[in-house]
């Protein structure tokens, strides 16, 4: 049978676009799945040229600029555990948000989750690396002399303890029993570590070029970025997203793409999804305009983006689940709480 040339070409064209249609359908399904699962908050460069805080649904809809301040750079917002408040840092206009030093920068501010009633807490550089303690009435800070828990209403320091090598990105577990952070272990820098809050005892969670840890809602597992030794990118490798249990015994690769560095890992409040950023430049992009944020299902891990031959050889069980692209942002956070904000 002779097949007309134009029919053959049409068939080829249809076959070539079929996978992308399927991928779009999968991504659309993911989008519908997460749309009503609370709210995201993130920092991003806005139309006024500075970094502002934004709120959106987890599918990216209902996005709004919460601060819209042309005279400041605002970054690193976090919902309080009950989502009744947010905390963030406010830097002077034009100050670069350093991806590793932001916790030392600017002033700490507390506001309602819609950005109203913002008030400064302390002066420039005070309350470094402040993050919420369970209950939302205290923050924990990471200073040179140690870890400090401070009552927000009075400024009273309720607990102080050595930091035992942790030097940035300190976050308390939802149950309040553990801290995680980036710290020094056995003469090496850049390890994700866990600290038992009662005794200060520290154990490594992931050694070698790991950072930006955050907790799962169960307080048992952590999500973080890591750049293992690799051949790709001229031997520099790509930063990947990993999870592990608190004692470090079950490291699990969850997402990577050899053309990007994955940061900002945040697990959804129901523990079923993960939020992250993909930046072609290492560091997460805070020094420029951030990077696109994405949502994926934890049921789809491990997944790999792009061709990524080295990653695919290392992780042949990849599921390559859909990832939903959201707006440009940096250091996103996620709450399941309905904030009473109209769509």
């Amino acid at each position: 049978m002779k097949i007309p040339v134009h029919s053959f070409m049409l068939a080829c064209a249809l076959l070539s676009i079929a996978p992308s249609i399927v991928a779009d359908e999968k991504t659309d399904a993911l989008s519908s799945e997460v749309a009503a699962k609370g709210w995201l908050i993130y920092s991003a460069r806005s139309d006024n040229g500075t970094w502002d805080l934004f709120l959106s649904r987890p599918d990216g809809s209902a996005a709004r600029n919460l601060t819209n301040t042309a005279d400041y750079e605002e970054a690193a917002p976090r919902f309080s555990p009950d989502a009744a408040q947010i905390l963030y840092r406010r830097l002077t206009k034009g100050e670069t948000i350093n991806h590793d030093q932001w916790g030392f920068s600017g002033q700490l501010l507390i506001a309602k989750p819609d950005g109203t009633d913002a008030r400064t807490v302390g002066e420039e550089g005070e309350y470094p690396w402040a993050s919420w303690m369970p209950g939302g009435k205290q923050v924990v800070c990471l200073e040179k002399k140690g870890i400090k828990i401070v009552e927000l209403a009075t400024g009273t320091v309720t607990k102080q303890m050595p930091r035992n090598g942790i030097y940035q990105q300190l976050f308390v577990s939802p149950d309040g029993k553990w801290f995680c952070g980036t710290g020094n272990v056995k003469g090496a820098a850049w390890n994700v570590v866990r600290m038992y809050a009662e005794t200060g005892e520290v154990n490594p969670v992931h050694e070698f070029q790991s950072c930006t840890p955050d907790w799962f809602p169960d307080s048992q597992r952590l999500i973080y970025s890591s750049r293992p030794e690799q051949k790709n990118n001229g031997g520099y490798g790509c930063t990947q997203l990993w999870i592990n249990v608190g004692d470090g015994s079950m490291p699990e690769f969850i997402y990577g793409d050899e053309s990007f560095h994955i940061y900002g890992g945040k697990v959804s409040p129901d523990g079923n999804y993960v939020l992250f950023t993909k930046c072609p430049k290492d560091g997460g992009g805070s020094e420029q305009n951030g990077a696109p944020m994405y949502v994926m299902r934890l049921a789809d891990v491990p997944s790999i983006g792009g061709d990524s031959p080295e990653l695919r050889a290392l992780h042949p069980n990849t599921k390559d689940g859909p990832i939903l692209e959201l707006a440009m942002g940096w250091e996103p956070d996620w709450t399941s709480t309905e904030l009473g904000i109209e769509k």
Binding site: K145, R163, G165, Y167, T182, G187, A188, A189
Partner: peptide, 15 residues
């Protein structure tokens, strides 16, 4: 150093 240096410390003499 641990009480003053708020950064990663690379110590090849560790151990």
């Amino acid at each position: 150093i641990d009480e003053y240096c708020m950064a990663g410390i690379i110590n090849k003499y560790a151990g």
